[in-house]
Nucleic acid binder design. Structure first.
Length: 474
DNA sequence: TTTTGAGTTGTTCGA
DNA sequence: GTCGAACAACTCAAA
């Protein structure tokens, strides 16, 4: 009898960029069916167009999955790990589990959408219930559309439209336990995926900096709400301070939802620091809005004129930039913070990116790829969109003549040099303002032979003129 | 259809 | 030392 059979059948929740149990609509809906639930995570490095995650993200994912598995077990849900093409794996699990329903939270990258749409079609055709839910964005890309264009290309009108639309739903609580009796299925062992680096294990700095997982995300948010957010607007640009939320990797892996962040911050008085912080959440939304419409955001400039831009080939300069050996203190500090912690302060991201793409005139895609590999928050939309914005080829991008001067920026945003001293040991003892200009004549006591700090790899004035000429020629 | 107002994050130069 | 202007137009979004 079909009804008897179906009474025993279970539900699958396929976890992707939503590694949490609170405010997880797909999980909540699956549990609400009052059937046993099986969780699934697929390490998919094979589906067409998917971008394999970088090394720092793999480290993060490893711990995050461990945490998710623990949380799910408390809800009577086993988490099955599988590797391979998602379409094959999901179909296989549905059969093996005898499932009659699959739940997931939607993804918005074009390649991911193609995978999901195709799966939804084949599963539905096979009589399996498929439910997708909105969880990772406050405003799904197709819900905001300008009157005269297919999508927004400028942030301010985008965010105005978003704020004027239906407010984001309230976050969901952790659901009750699922019905007992989930089938036992074979899966991969997490350790066999080797997401955690070995020989050498370079993750010490990451371990010391982060607590991946849902609990760590909540702790981070609470700390920010009781501290940094109150002075966010004025201090967010100071890389030496802990004035930003540092939620980016947690948001990237969905250990916390933007809805949870939104409702925590939106309860603050309007017009103040809370709004400023929310507009940064808005930039995340805007980047995904762009990526939804632009499949190759990481590979192709939004502005087609940049196809002809004469990027310089300079492997030695690229290596110096990656290693934090450019001779410009704030740039080197940022690149070393990135290497050590898997993260870099936003102001410094702009400076280091501008330095590569404009001062050195090296293709922004090479910088984007480096960030993709080294950032724990490397995001398929934010990372390329941010690089394109800095390089001047993106949507709503910085004007070409805006070329950051790393010395002036450091003097302005790291006035006492605390950030530089933290990350560039050679300058730790540099007296006073010489930390910003270690090679200047007035810093005679800081010759590089003495400090071990290398001289600049490029002359700022020469590089600026070179870049202005090239960008102007576009 | 045409018009209009506006657009994340700077730097440099010269008065 | 401070301050305003130049740096460039162009495109987007909405009325």
């Amino acid at each position: 009898m079909v009804s008897d059979l179906s009474a025993n059948r279970c539900s699958i929740v396929w976890f992707r960029d939503d590694l949490r149990v609170s405010d997880n609509p797909a999980l909540t809906a699956a549990i609400a069916r009052d059937r046993p639930v099986v969780g699934l995570f697929v390490l998919d490095e094979e589906s067409d167009g998917l971008r394999p995650i970088g090394a720092a993200s793999r480290w993060w994912l490893n711990t995050s999955i461990e945490g998710l598995a623990r949380e799910l077990l408390r809800l009577n849900i086993p988490l099955i790990l599988r590797r391979g093409r998602a379409d094959a794996v999901v179909n296989d699990i549905v059969v093996a589990a005898g499932a009659d329903a699959v739940f997931w939270n939607r993804r918005y990258g074009p390649a991911e959408r193609a995978v999901d749409a195709s799966l939804k079609e084949s599963l539905t055709a096979a009589g399996i219930i498929v439910e997708s839910h909105a969880a990772s964005l406050l405003f799904e890309p197709w819900t905001l559309k300008p009157a005269t264009a297919p999508y927004y290309r400028v942030f301010t009108p985008f965010w105005r439209a978003a704020l004027g639309s239906a407010p984001p739903r309230r976050p969901l609580p952790v659901p009750k336990q699922a019905t007992q009796g989930a089938p036992r299925l074979s899966g991969a062992r997490l350790a066999d995926w080797r997401l955690h680096p070995t020989s050498p294990d370079w993750s010490g700095g990451l371990e010391a900096t982060w607590t991946p997982g849902e609990a760590g995300a909540r702790t981070r948010l609470d700390a920010f709400l009781s501290g940094g957010i109150g002075s966010y607007a004025t201090e967010r640009d100071r890389p030496a301070l802990a004035a930003t939320s540092r939620l980016s990797p947690h948001l990237r892996f969905g250990e916390i939802s933007p809805h949870q962040v939104w409702h925590a911050a939106a309860s603050r008085p309007p017009g103040g620091d809370g709004d400023k912080f929310l507009s940064e959440i808005g930039w995340r939304e805007f980047c995904w809005h762009l990526h939804y419409h632009l499949p190759d955001l990481a590979g192709r400039a939004f502005n087609p004129r940049f196809e002809a831009f004469p990027w310089r080939s300079d492997p030695a300069a690229l290596t110096a930039w990656q290693r934090g050996e450019t001779g410009y203190p704030i740039i080197d500090a940022g690149m070393r913070e990135l290497w050590h912690t898997g993260w870099m302060h936003n102001r410094v991201r702009m400076l280091t990116a501008s330095f590569l793409a404009k001062t050195l005139m090296i293709d922004w895609r090479l910088g984007e790829a480096w960030f993709w590999d080294t950032l724990v928050d490397a995001d398929p939309a934010n990372n390329p969109a941010g690089w394109q914005w800095v390089a001047g080829c993106g949507a709503d991008a910085a004007p070409y003549f805006r070329i950051f001067n790393p010395v002036l920026q450091a003097e302005k945003f790291d006035p006492d040099g605390a950030y530089i001293r933290r990350w560039v040991p050679a300058l730790r003892a540099a007296p006073g303002k010489t930390v910003h200009r270690p090679q200047a004549p007035s810093s005679a006591g800081l010759l590089d032979a003495e400090t071990g700090y290398a001289p600049p790899i490029v002359d700022l004035q020469v590089a600026r003129q070179r870049a202005l000429a090239a960008f102007k020629a576009l």
